[in-house]
C-alpha cells in the first residue's frame, strides 16, 4: 500500500488527526453556531459548546412529534441516509468524538479484547426500543436518557458551568455518570464497546455499509492469514469475514495490510480487484 517513498496513502495516515479536528469542530460554538444542522456523529447538543445539533436527539424529538403531525422526521433521516449511502459507517471511524475517546482509551493496554460479534445486534434493539418506540409512545428521548456521550458532554459540564442546575441532580444523573464510567472502563479492556453494541446512530449508519459508494474489498488471494488486520482493527472485528458488516466502522486501519489484501475503493470501481482479475486472466 505504500507509495514510492514508503508512505501510506493520505487517507490511511491521517485518521487520528481527522478525529481530533472533527471533535473540535463539533464543539466550537465560540467560532460558529450551526445548530440547525444535524452533524451525523454522536455529539450531544447539551454540550455547552456544541456547534451542531445531535441527530439522535433530533430524531427522537421528530418521532415524538409524529403523533401529532403524522410526519416522518425527514430532515434527520435524510441526512443520515444521504451520508451513509455515500460513506457507510465511516463517520464512526473518522469523525465521531465518542469513538475517538474509545480509541484513545483502547490504547492504554497493549492487548484489548473483542466484543462477541452477536452482541452487535443489540444496538438495533436500542435503536428500535429506546430511539423509536419509547419516544413515540412517551414523548421522551429515551436514548438520550441513557446516552453516555450526553453524560460526558452535558451531564458533567453543564452543572459545572451553571451551579443553579445542581439542585436538579438526582438518581438519574448518577445513573448516567455510572453508565459513562462503565463505558470508559470497558473501553480500556474492550475495543469500542459502545460503537459495537449500543450506539443507535451507528446502527442506522450500518444499514448502508455494504451498499455505500465508499467500499472496502478483501482479496483472499493476497491474504496470508497473519491476523495483522484483526489486531489492528479498532472496532474489534475480523476484517477477513466481517469487513463492511454491521460492526465495521470503515476506519480503513485494516487497509494498511502489509500484504495488500484489503483495499479502499468505490462501489463503481476497484482498481486493485481489476488488477488481480487481469493477472488471473493472463496465460
Amino acid at each position: 500500500m505504500a507509495d514510492g517513498r514508503g508512505r501510506l496513502p493520505l487517507h490511511l495516515r491521517t485518521r487520528r488527526f481527522v478525529q481530533f479536528i472533527a471533535a473540535f469542530g463539533a464543539n466550537a460554538l465560540f467560532l460558529y453556531d450551526l445548530r440547525f444542522i444535524c452533524v451525523p456523529v454522536l455529539n450531544c447538543w447539551a454540550c455547552p459548546v456544541a456547534s451542531f445539533a445531535c441527530p439522535m436527539g433530533a430524531l427522537q424529538s421528530g418521532i415524538s412529534a409524529m403523533r401529532g403531525a403524522l410526519l416522518l422526521p425527514f430532515y434527520v433521516l435524510g441526512t443520515i441516509l444521504a451520508v451513509s449511502a455515500v460513506i457507510g459507517r465511516s463517520m464512526c471511524g473518522f469523525l465521531c468524538p465518542f469513538g475517538l475517546l474509545q480509541d484513545l482509551l483502547g490504547r492504554i493496554r497493549r492487548h484489548t479484547a473483542r466484543v462477541p460479534r452477536a452482541m452487535g445486534y443489540l444496538k438495533y434493539a436500542f435503536l428500535i426500543v429506546l430511539g423509536i418506540i419509547l419516544p413515540y409512545l412517551t414523548f421522551t428521548p429515551w436514548f438520550c436518557e441513557f446516552c453516555p456521550q450526553g453524560a460526558l458532554e452535558g451531564g458533567i459540564f453543564q452543572p459545572l458551568l451553571h451551579p443553579d442546575l445542581r439542585e436538579w441532580i438526582g438518581a438519574w444523573w448518577y445513573l448516567k455518570i455510572g453508565i459513562l464510567a462503565a463505558f470508559v472502563i470497558a473501553s480500556i479492556f474492550v475495543r469500542r464497546p459502545f460503537c459495537h453494541s449500543f450506539c443507535a446512530l451507528g446502527a442506522l449508519f450500518s444499514l448502508c455499509n455494504r451498499v455505500s459508494l465508499l467500499r472496502m474489498h478483501y482479496i483472499r488471494e493476497e491474504c496470508t492469514d497473519c491476523m495483522w488486520c484483526v489486531r489492528a482493527c479498532p472496532a474489534g472485528i475480523d476484517p477477513r469475514t466481517d469487513l463492511e458488516g454491521m460492526n465495521c466502522i470503515k476506519c480503513m486501519e485494516c487497509a494498511k495490510c502489509p500484504f495488500g489484501a484489503i483495499h479502499v475503493s468505490s462501489a463503481v470501481k476497484c482498481s486493485a480487484c481489476d488488477a488481480i482479475a487481469a493477472k488471473d486472466d493472463m496465460p
Partner: peptide, 30 residues
Amino acid sequence: AMIAWGVRIGRPGIIEQQAKALCTACIGLT
C-alpha cells in the same frame, strides 16, 4: 430529497430551537 423536504417544512429551525434549549434528558437532570 428528504433533506430538501425537511428544509421546506421548516425542520432546521425547529431543531435549532431544540438544540438551544437545555436538554435535561441528555444531562440527566430530574
